[in-house]
Design a protein around this nucleic acid. Structure first.
Lengths: 222, 222
DNA sequence: TAATGCATTGCGGGAAAACGCAAGGGAAAG
DNA sequence: CTTTCCCTTGCGTTTTCCCGCAATGCATTA
């Protein structure tokens, strides 16, 4: 089994729960850090000393606080880690439940496992570690299920989410169109914005733009 | 110290971390459940058997899954628990960080403590339990100030809040006017609705209705 | 009593958004 | 290559929203 595992998780109790659940796997050294930057520092230091970590278990979102940080998300951390230690095994442990997002993590960042924060995670994190140790990948049940029934599972792409976020920032449709045009996005005309908004309203069953954004916020899309 | 504590938390590892951190407090019985409904059932059962729980530690948001549930949030759970066992001490443990929301939990639901899911929670949850056991309330440092001092705290009256809520439900301005007229509210004309909305936009520094509602939601007013 | 201030409301013009329609245009299928 | 389909886009109409202005009414104040 792995000898050294690093956990990056900013919820204290969740981090200790994670550590606790891994102690049964005869891993000799488990370190928990609460900041992305700390994780990267520890990884570099261990590498320098010739006793590198073998696995990084990381959350994706880290709450900001008074401390200055250069890394602000798990994605950035993973990208940096891959630069300094490409052999590092990466296990993502997050509440993220968008199939597209997880697919991106796998395709672009080359993560080895994904475990969702849910009611069954306590079983799955151990399975994931074992699978990864055997050189395999692991993605949790709930995610696989979401993959199969991705039809009724509503999912928004980055375009939709950005559009909704711009709306919450107070931009008017015309300003959003301009914003997209400046960045050479597809479907950047005013009419296309309206079209997409109409489709989103249909998806969410929303009657007004306010209703749409309220729904999206309540469901955690933005 | 308390004898029986119930924990409602849908993240398995977080739940076990919570339980683990409480074992040092000489609490004889700690039960963890993953659904709101289960929590209510356990509480009712214990009450019937004459060995009621003394404290409920609960998250606010619970992920939906295949199981049918009647309760979908911590708020609903707390409200139901207060009905069947008003003496129950309530500790909320959540990522929620909106002052308005926490203020509402305290004012309307009468919670005894709030601990945020963050890097310091592992220390604070113990403190919270001890304080509550002594009949006091506990809110972490960052919240205390905000809860007491309503100085810079902008206050919205029921009219404003209802107005914003109706907007999030998808009603148009004219429908809202009609809604108010049917209930004999003052300032129920369309023009008054618009006037009020304009003032609210000024207060929140919002440029569009969507912006306004997004701000209000982010700050926990609705 | 008279004056002042503030909320409420209607009206009207202008801005923004909603939406059908139809004209391209590119990709996939035949 | 042609056809089909869908996405994108502009145009024009209708609806909704925004906001200044002014009249009214109620309460407070001089």
């Amino acid at each position: 089994m792995f000898q050294k595992v690093l956990i990056a998780e900013d919820h204290g109790l969740t981090g200790s729960g994670l550590k606790e659940s891994l102690t049964g796997l005869s891993i000799s050294e488990i370190l928990v850090v609460h900041y992305c930057d700390d994780a990267l520092l520890k990884i570099k230091a261990a590498l320098q000393q010739g006793t590198p970590f073998e696995v990084l278990i990381t959350d994706l979102s880290f709450k900001v606080d008074y401390k200055n940080r250069s890394l602000s998300s798990g994605e950035e951390l993973i990208a940096e880690v891959k630069k300094v230690q490409p052999t590092m095994k990466i296990v993502v442990y997050s509440v993220e439940n968008r199939v597209g997002k997880i697919k991106t993590l796998y395709d672009d960042l080359g993560i080895d496992a994904f475990v969702g924060k849910d009611r069954r995670d306590i079983n799955e994190i151990g399975k994931a570690i074992k699978q990864v140790f055997e050189g395999k990948t692991y993605f949790s049940e709930s995610w696989q299920h979401a993959l199969r029934s991705s039809e009724n599972q509503l999912e928004l792409d980055d375009y939709d989410i950005l559009l909704l976020k711009l709306l919450t920032k107070g931009l008017k449709q015309e300003e959003i169109a301009q914003y997209f045009q400046e960045r050479n996005y597809p479907a950047s005309s005013l009419r296309s914005i309206q079209d997409r908004l109409g489709k989103l309203k249909a998806i969410f069953g929303a009657k007004t733009p306010v209703h749409l954004v309220a729904q999206a916020m309540e469901r955690g899309f933005i």
